[in-house]
């Protein structure tokens, strides 16, 4: 029985057995790393360029809406409903002399 402390020969499983093949493998990995880095950088620069345009467009749109909101005419105040109670109370004053027309308006019977 062979000694379990003895090293097994696994060299046939080695795909980078010498310095040359190790250098080649390293170069291959680094080429992929650099390609991946370049792709990511170009993606970021593309996103960066588009984001400038997008930010400009958003600012312009916001400015237009703001301008339109400021320049729109003030909404007309809602017509106030006549308050007959107050008018009737004011007529209870001793010196109050409402005209006929005024009374008709307050009582809702104006022509």
């Amino acid at each position: 029985m062979s000694d379990p402390n003895e090293k097994l020969d696994l060299s046939c499983l080695d795909l980078a057995p010498d310095d040359l093949s190790l250098d080649a493998a390293t170069a291959l990995v680094m080429a992929r790393v650099l390609e991946d880095q370049a792709q990511r950088q170009s993606l970021w620069s593309l996103l960066g360029a588009y984001s400038k345009w997008a930010a400009g467009l958003a600012t312009a749109t916001a400015a237009v809406f703001w301008f339109l909101a400021l320049s729109a005419p003030e909404p007309a105040p809602a017509p106030t409903a006549p308050q007959p109670e107050a008018a009737l109370l004011s007529w209870s004053e001793p010196d109050a002399e409402p005209s006929v027309t005024e009374m008709l308006v307050v009582l809702g019977d104006a022509p």
Binding site: L13, L15, A16, L22, D23, A25, T26, V29, M30, V33, L34, Q37
Partner: peptide, 28 residues
């Protein structure tokens, strides 16, 4: 610094291969 990473790749390539081989059990 990619040059430093390249040195790390060279130093660890075989260890990475061994670890991968321990899981996938096919050299390629």
């Amino acid at each position: 610094d990619t040059a430093s990473f390249s040195k790390l790749v060279r130093a660890h390539y075989r260890a990475c291969y061994c670890t991968a081989l321990a899981v996938v059990r096919l050299p390629e």
